[in-house]
Amino acid sequence: MNPNPPSATLRPLVLIEDNELDHRAIERGLQKLNVRNPVTHFHAGEEALDYIRNYKVSADHPETTPGLIILDLNLPDTHGREILAALKHHEEMRVIPVVVWSISSDPADIKLCYLDGANSYIQKTVSLEGTQELLQHITTYWLDLVSLPPVAPADA
């Protein structure tokens, strides 16, 4: 079975980002790119951590398992790397690709994120056109090009 069929069962995108600006930019961008996957927003780190801690793959609707997580590193209440660690230590969520989305160009930040299991590290750009371009690359790559890990149990 195609894990990411073109219709009906589009896997949700999880966006962990406190910045109102990025919400707008990403929403606009996805709209312009015609990406129809549902987007789950978390505006604060604690909120996201709660979600991760309590997360279970739905037995009835495994297709509701997120397909991609976009994580901002600079959150006001929790450091993004803490959330990254929580994700990568979660029994079921660890297979979901995480794209770290950050303004930091500090090589130390970049290295640590990869060490913690980030699948991509992307630096935010100043211009909206840049953001749009990055978004296009991200969605093309992660939602169209790659095969995402299957969510249904192997024997189901």
């Binding site: 600006l21 707008r24 930019a25 303004i103 935010k124 750009t125 100043v126 211009s127 909206l128 056109e129 953001t131």
Partner: peptide
Amino acid sequence: RGIHHYTS
């Protein structure tokens, strides 16, 4: 970045 984006 905010200035640039909002201007856009």
